[in-house]
Amino acid sequence: MPFWLEIIINVVFSYVASVGFALIINVPHRDLNFSGISGVVGWMAYWFCFRWGLGRMASNLIGAFLIGILGLFFARIKKSPVTVFNIPALVPLVPGVPAYQAVRALVAGNYSQGEELLLRVAIVTGGISLGFLLSTMCTEAFYKFKYRYFKNARLYIKHKK
């Protein structure tokens, strides 16, 4: 399969998954497109990073970081809560298949495979949560720096006159 076709398939299905989940959890219709865009950006960041060999945790961290940044950005633009954009965008990153396989292996009595799959799920969820944490910290630091810089610049201009 050509690389450009893989990209198109990933973009389409990550958008459909994000918007579909957003419809299920009753996201306002005016925010659906931005939820889908957040999902596409997060999934494509994950997909490219994983293809380049960064591993599951780093790829999920980068994808969740971008989803968090975009969620905060879109929330300011659309004047909506951040969760309206973040929760549906996370759907493509959630490790549903390994979680199902882990539970299935544990029920079947295959404890070593179940533990391995549970560890994979824990690593992925840790990467996602760390990505959101970092995105929130970076945006708060940015706005704090912006506020202080412009506040000091205004005081300097007033003082100079």
Rank of each mutant, 00 (worst) to 15 (best):
L117D: 10
I37K: 07
S59M: 04
V40D: 05
F48P: 03
N10I: 08
S135R: 01
A58Y: 03
G127C: 07
W52Y: 15
F74V: 06
I9C: 01
G126I: 04
I62E: 04
A17Q: 06
L130E: 02
A22Y: 12
L61H: 06
A122P: 05
L119D: 03
K79S: 09
A45F: 11
A122G: 13
Y100L: 00
K151S: 11
I67W: 05
S112E: 14
S135I: 09
L23N: 09
K78Q: 12
C49E: 00
P28V: 00
G96D: 10
Y46Q: 05
K146Q: 13
V19S: 04
P88W: 14
Y46E: 02
L66E: 04
L134T: 06
F65H: 11
W4S: 10
I67P: 12
E115T: 10
S18C: 08
E115L: 15
L106I: 03
F142L: 15
G68W: 13
I69G: 04
I157Q: 14
D31H: 11
A102W: 04
L93K: 11
V82G: 05
S59L: 07
S135T: 05
K151P: 01
A105M: 04
V27A: 13
G114T: 01
A22F: 11
F3L: 09
F13H: 02
V40P: 05
F50L: 07
P81A: 10
M1H: 02
F34P: 03
A122W: 09
S135C: 03
K78P: 08
L70H: 11
A58N: 01
T139R: 08
E115F: 14
I157K: 15
A141R: 06
I157G: 00
V94D: 06
K158R: 15
H159M: 06
V124A: 15
F145A: 15
R51G: 04
G127K: 14
F85C: 08
I157P: 00
I67G: 11
V107M: 06
F145N: 05
Y149T: 01
R51M: 08
A58L: 07
W43M: 08
G39N: 10
N10G: 01
Y46R: 12
V84G: 07
T83P: 01
I24E: 02
F132C: 12
Y143T: 00
